[in-house]
Nucleic acid binder design. Sequence first.
DNA 1: CTTCGTGCAAAATGTTTGCAGTTTC
DNA 2: GAAACTGCAAACATTTTGCACGAAG
Lengths: 141, 141
Amino acid sequence: MTLKTHNHKDELRDVALKATPARMAILDFLEKEHRPVDVPALLSYLTKSDIDIDQATVYRILDKFYKGNIIKRLEFQEGKFRYEITHTDDHHHLICEQCGAIEDISDCGIEVLEKEINKKKKFLVKRHSLEFFGVCAVCQR
Amino acid sequence: MTLKTHNHKDELRDVALKATPARMAILDFLEKEHRPVDVPALLSYLTKSDIDIDQATVYRILDKFYKGNIIKRLEFQEGKFRYEITHTDDHHHLICEQCGAIEDISDCGIEVLEKEINKKKKFLVKRHSLEFFGVCAVCQR
DNA sequence: CTTCGTGCAAAATGTTTGCAGTTTC
DNA sequence: GAAACTGCAAACATTTTGCACGAAG
């Protein structure tokens, strides 16, 4: 069992955001889901949880969370964004193009590459996106 | 000087696509531009070149090209797609968040990682996306 | 009580589709 | 001439915005 030093309220206070029911529910959902979620999924969860919320509000909340570095914003070549809780480790995703399964992968050793880029190209890397698309183990059978 | 074994007409015939003026112009533009372009940029170029084309047609052409592997489809966290001619080398991009400059970078050594993923996770990688966001040399000054 | 957050409606942006007419091979 | 391609208009999906009301600290 891990020691939880922060709850959602603290998390929000840390970035000067008020702890509203909608925000708490969104954090709950993002934490519960073990994959990056899109806005439709978020909305349908909120509706099912009897939280009546407008999509505009959801986008505004996600924007605040993103800017406060509480969540990450990802693109899986779908023409829309997905969001996931910011974790301490730098991980990426394996996206199965057949069933849509999303696996995590860590330790891609990309920091080395970033340093090299900085040295060779004088480009200061702030963040990167790295996703793999293919066929998962189950779909290969 | 490099030997050009293929022109645009051949390129299209190779993937069973008819060589129409619009398609030739789009290939011209994508070849001329040294950065991944979005649809608005493509449309404005075509208009300036007195090629009257509907956006629906542009999207349909890009779709065909993408499926024929003539072009690549990229996302730079902008909520839209960008396209570039498919090159033989596997390169990625450094995107300056301040001025929008896009530099190429090669030899990221990601094939090694893909093989590892295949072995460890039994996930068959077909393609990947890797982009770096940060500040370019000019904007750092 | 002031600032921040939300709902509602509308719009902006990017992309896709149906269908009738046109072009390419 | 058949199949592929295109224009037009409309629809669709995602995301953003203005404004008035409501809630949190």
